[in-house]
């Protein structure tokens, strides 16, 4: 690897992550009722001095479903919505206040997410279709697995507010401290 190339990579990394970004936050989330555990997102509310390079993510509409069901992005990122079916789909968000319109199979449209939040994506033609675009201030977020476990890697040392989001349930946020190269473990509970 050339010195110049290494410098470029180092510069890119320094633009997105503070130094010592190899801590980890892991843990479990339980939900009551447990059937609503699905679609739970755990994220760090704010990481100071975050500067991110914008990225583009893809959400397809395939087999009458949004794939993936949840996409985790950061402010300034773009989501490219594709239509992988052979019939028309629509993309709109009652949370984001936008309607990208309706288009046929093979088409695609993009939307830039400028504000943090969780934005439901629906298809007006097929009311059962649903996806969530989570837009964070940073990229330290994870979707819990079927057992409620989650891991957020590459967390810089510091103290943070860890927040849980779920479509139906609520949980109090927790303060968590990550030491340099350390791992913090958290347990969170969701309920009505």
């Amino acid at each position: 690897m050339s010195i110049s190339r290494s410098l470029v990579i180092a510069a890119l990394l320094s633009s997105s992550l503070p130094a010592f970004a190899d801590g980890k936050i892991s843990g479990t989330v339980d939900a009551k009722p447990s059937k609503y555990l699905k679609d739970t997102i755990v994220y760090i509310k704010e990481v100071p001095s975050t500067k991110l390079a914008a990225k583009t993510f893809v959400v397809d509409q395939k087999g009458m479903a949004f794939v993936p069901h949840i996409v985790l992005i950061a402010v300034g990122d773009t989501v490219k919505f594709k239509n992988g079916d052979k019939f028309d789909h629509n993309v709109m968000s009652p949370d984001g206040g936008y309607d990208l319109g309706t288009w046929g199979g093979g088409g695609e449209k993009e939307h830039v997410f400028a504000k943090p939040g969780v934005f439901a994506q629906v298809c007006k033609i097929h009311p059962e279709m649903l996806a969530y675009v989570f837009v964070g201030q940073n990229r330290f977020a994870a979707v819990v697995d079927d057992n409620g476990s989650f891991t957020i890697d590459g967390v810089p040392a510091g103290s943070y507010e860890l927040v849980v989001w779920n479509p139906k349930l609520k949980a109090a946020s927790k303060n968590v401290t990550v030491v340099d190269k350390g791992a913090a473990t958290v347990k969170l509970s969701l309920a009505r």
Partner: peptide
Amino acid sequence: DAVKAEPVALGTDEQKKM
């Protein structure tokens, strides 16, 4: 919350916002 045989949704809850 107590239903275990999940029904077929004729639309998501997000439709209510619309």
